[in-house]
Amino acid sequence: GHGGQGGHGEPEYFGDGGYPHGQGGAPDPYAANNPGHTQAFSVGEDPYTQGETYQAGAAPAGPVGPRLHWKALLRGIVLSPGQTFLQMRDYTMWGPALVVTFLYGLLAVFGFDGARNDAINATLSNAVPIVLTTAVAMVLSSFVLGVVTHTLARQLGGDGAWQPTVGLSMLIMSLTDAPRLVFAMFAGGDATFVQALGWATWVAAGTLLTLMVSKSHDLPWPKALGASAIQLVALLSIVKLGTF
């Protein structure tokens, strides 16, 4: 990994020709945030690396390993996160990220006591829209939070691509909170045990997010934690307070 200063002053690594790289008080180190700058990119391209990462399916440094199958990916996030995040930093994983987050969202209704009672007491035709709306809302909010985390990581000098960062952050958020939801379905979100489990899984989410950002963006962990902070605070409010 780079040292503290390593991420800066290497424009040739980014291959972006001449954006300032955060020297001192440069107004915006990543010009992709400037108005009009994002229009030029097609949907599949990364506005930061201008799609170069995906031309050969590898970052300039070369991929750490082959793309993981979704089962190996999900297992790896839980059992060997460091290796998994490093290996997947060059690959997109929209399929697993969207499916897992959507399934998580379907369960999420049962984690909020108000919505849970509505869904359980509603007839099926009324419950389906409640559940589907919640699931779509969870997918969208986790996507937005992932983008926020990625943008912050870039501002802090990270060099990762946005699609793997967002995909992994969606998976981390869903997988870590799933155990709490499973118990909340039976015991209710307010049960002491479920609350305690929620805190434990939230800490796990913070640990995994920090590790992922640090691997994906080649950042020291304090910066990685800083980049994950907004997502973690949002998770806390969604998960612990049950407020949307």
Rank of each mutant, 00 (worst) to 15 (best):
H2K: 08
G4K: 02
G4N: 01
Q5S: 14
Q5P: 12
G6H: 04
H8S: 13
P11V: 14
P11A: 15
E12Q: 14
Y13V: 14
F14K: 00
F14V: 04
G18L: 12
G18D: 14
G18S: 13
Y19T: 11
G24V: 13
P27V: 06
P27T: 04
D28Q: 12
D28C: 07
P29G: 05
Y30M: 08
N33M: 09
N33Q: 09
N33H: 14
N34P: 02
S42G: 06
S42A: 09
S42W: 05
V43W: 09
D46E: 05
P47D: 10
Y48A: 05
Q50K: 13
G51I: 10
T53S: 09
G57R: 10
G57Q: 13
A59R: 11
A59T: 08
P60G: 01
P63N: 11
P66K: 14
P66L: 11
R67P: 04
W70M: 08
W70L: 07
L74V: 00
G76W: 07
G82M: 06
T84A: 04
L86T: 05
Q87L: 12
Q87S: 14
Q87R: 15
Q87G: 06
M88E: 15
D90Q: 01
V100N: 01
V100P: 00
F102P: 00
L103V: 15
L106D: 06
V109F: 04
F110S: 07
F112P: 02
D113A: 00
A115N: 06
N117C: 02
N117Y: 02
A119N: 06
I120Q: 12
N121E: 13
L124N: 08
N126W: 02
P129W: 05
T133F: 11
T133R: 13
A135K: 00
A137I: 09
M138V: 12
M138H: 08
V139N: 08
V139G: 07
S142F: 14
S142V: 05
F143C: 11
G146V: 09
G146P: 09
H150P: 02
T151F: 12
T151A: 14
A153K: 00
R154P: 02
Q155E: 13
D159Q: 14
G160Q: 05
G160Y: 05
Q163G: 14
Q163K: 13
T165G: 06
L168R: 04
M173P: 01
D177M: 10
A178S: 08
P179I: 12
V182A: 14
V182Y: 08
F183N: 08
A184G: 07
G189K: 00
D190G: 14
T192G: 07
V194N: 04
A196L: 13
G198S: 11
W199M: 03
W202T: 05
V203W: 12
A205Y: 01
G206I: 08
L209K: 06
L211C: 07
V213I: 15
S214C: 04
K215R: 15
S216G: 01
D218I: 03
D218F: 05
P220A: 10
A224V: 06
A224M: 07
L225I: 11
L225R: 05
S228V: 07
A229G: 04
L236H: 03
I238G: 08
G242D: 13
T243Y: 02
F244A: 15
F244I: 15
